[in-house]
Amino acid sequence: MQDSKPNDPQKQATQIDNFAAALRGEAPLAVGDVIQRSWDITLRALPMMLLGVAVLIIMNGVVSGIAESVFPMEQDQPDPRNSIFQSLLSIIFVAPFTAVVTLMGLKNARDAKPGLECFAEALRCLPQVLAITFIMSVVVMILAALFFFIFGIGAIAVSLVLVTAIYFQFAFLLAIPLVLERGLKISRAIIASFLVMNKKMFTVLGIYVVLFIVIFISALPLFLGLIFTFPMSFNVVGVIYNRLIGVPNSNAELEQQPNEAQL
């Protein structure tokens, strides 16, 4: 990545509270800024993030193995319900470990060095993380079932399911970070994430298109580049959050923002 000037905003964390502005759609967000900033901060805490990613990958393998044994899929007559249960089980039980690496990305984005305390901090929010993940997964699965019921198993239904899954993935993107960083209740975190992300949906889509290209290129030389770009993907979430939401001005404002009128 090309270096920025020393006092370039891309080199700096957002240190003001942008939450109210983000709810109004007034907080700035640029594709190049997010990608550049995410790359710049990746090396700083790479060892700790690699530890978090390693735990995430291991737990994902363990949970997937358990899900396959509890809800087996017969090759001759696969049961679609078992496939759904496998996916739901994997998503929900891996979510706490994803939250740990997400929290590391949030700390990186605001220039705070992440450490082992991220595991304890993220696990303290375990009920909220599980609830948000469950709600998102169930909403997507209900809509997917509805599309397949209406259009049958074909290209139209598959396309609608894919678009729906991508939309809700982005719409919920800030919900867990808002719980981890600001301690918002589940409902307020989801509503706030929807309000903020819907105003920046196309910009975020552009960010992830560029990120996908970067990850794809990094995987070409024996997958070695993924050592940097996989942790970078969590920093992207942290930078999007930092640019849009910023940091609270005081501890008191953690309870005040966003207010009921804004949500």
Rank of each mutant, 00 (worst) to 15 (best):
A112H: 15
V31N: 02
T203V: 14
K113C: 12
A54V: 06
G183M: 04
M49E: 15
S38F: 01
A189W: 07
P221L: 02
R182Y: 05
L224S: 12
N108D: 11
I186H: 02
L244A: 08
G65D: 08
A21P: 09
R81N: 11
A22S: 05
A112M: 15
E260I: 12
I186E: 03
A20Q: 10
S83F: 11
L143C: 01
R44V: 09
L88A: 03
Q12W: 15
L46K: 08
P127G: 09
R110S: 14
M48C: 05
I84N: 04
I227W: 03
N259G: 11
V210G: 05
A22P: 05
Q75I: 15
S137R: 07
L103P: 09
A261Q: 12
P78E: 00
L106Q: 15
E181D: 15
G246K: 06
I92S: 04
E68T: 11
A122N: 09
D17E: 08
S87P: 04
L205S: 08
P221H: 03
Q257S: 13
R182G: 10
V179N: 01
V34G: 01
G105K: 12
L174M: 01
A109S: 06
A21W: 07
G206I: 12
L195G: 10
Q15E: 15
Q262I: 11
L106S: 08
I16V: 14
F119E: 11
A261I: 13
L23N: 12
A30Y: 15
F97C: 07
P231L: 00
T164N: 00
A95W: 06
F85I: 08
S4G: 15
F170K: 10
R188L: 09
F97S: 02
K199W: 08
I190D: 00
V139S: 02
P47N: 04
A165H: 09
M141L: 11
N82T: 00
I142N: 00
N60C: 11
N108E: 12
G115C: 12
V63N: 05
G154A: 03
F151A: 00
F148R: 02
P78H: 00
N60T: 11
I176T: 10
F216H: 12
I142V: 03
M49T: 12
D8E: 02
D8L: 05
F71M: 02
N259S: 13
F97E: 01
T102D: 13
D76K: 04
M201S: 06
L56P: 01
S87L: 00
N18Y: 10
D33Y: 04
